[in-house]
Nucleic acid binder design. Structure first.
Lengths: 146, 146
DNA sequence: TCCTGTATAAGAATTATTCTTAAAAAAGAA
DNA sequence: TTCTTTTTTAAGAATAATTCTTATACAGGA
């Protein structure tokens, strides 16, 4: 991804849009370029601010809509806050989660093995690590049977 | 946690509150009981709805405040949507994250090993798993040096 | 070029969460 | 107990993120 040249990335982008029946608009190009050129997992607001000076008629709603569309077709991913409501877990013991991509259900499971994953060197050197969690994602039983 | 009896759990709860200089109020007891008796990682709103019929003067603000307090002292955990703004990642290749608990910075790292974690049987049987991510949490370089 | 469906801007609306403030409750001291 | 101080709460206003509505503009195909 970061290795590609701008040109190639653009062609790839255009192709993926076409495959999903999406028009290739200046707004979509701008949002995709802004995101794929950034390393810090920006929010919609940050992307909007980065673009609006060169693209004054761009609206924040379009940025949200565009990013959602991209995430929907798998062109980008959502990380961090999922824009969902905050949820709470009474279990403070180390444990891990499965999260249903469709209904957002969260299922706990225990795995001493996962709780003992080795911290990668690159993190170990710079950060103080206080915990690790493994999140499997997919479709839950209920959503599968529909 | 779920193994304990109500009584023991309550004594433990009271003890932890005291240790952190928190008064043990009916609201706090109610919110903690509601959360620790639930298996589905409820939102503040859900907890509020569960309680308000027996506790009509309870306010939603108190539920939020109480849950935040509990999370702060480590009595419960926040899962799922972190209540933070949604953020986007242009990298759709399997990779993993470190997340700073203080400034919410997200740092990518790659680990083919983590991307190949074996799906636990309990999930394998019921769900369709489409991905896995490992999230390390702690304090980042910048936040450590303050 | 024109046509048709798709995408957009603008701003209103919605929703989750936090803040403000005055009152109530709890803890501590006398 | 009663008085004082500190903490907590309820109520509702405020804020911030995200989505919706609608009329207009644009993209891609014929």
């Amino acid at each position: 991804m970061h290795k590609q040249h701008k040109k190639e990335r653009f062609e790839e982008f255009r192709k993926i849009c076409r495959e999903h029946g999406l028009n290739v608009t200046p707004q979509r190009i701008a949002v995709y370029e802004a995101l794929s050129g950034s390393k810090n997992h920006p929010s919609a607001e940050e992307i909007f601010r980065r673009l609006v000076s060169n693209f004054p008629e761009l609206s924040i709603d379009t940025v949200y809509r565009t990013l959602n569309t991209f995430a929907h077709i798998g062109l980008i991913r959502i990380v961090g806050g999922y824009g969902e409501v905050r949820r709470y877990d009474p279990d403070t013991q180390p444990h891990h989660h499965f999260r249903c991509l469709k209904c957002s259900r969260i299922v706990d499971f225990e795995s001493p093995e996962f709780s003992r994953l080795k911290v990668p060197d690159v993190l170990q050197r710079k950060c103080r690590i206080t915990g690790v969690k493994v999140v499997f994602e997919g479709l839950c039983e209920e959503c599968l049977s529909r």
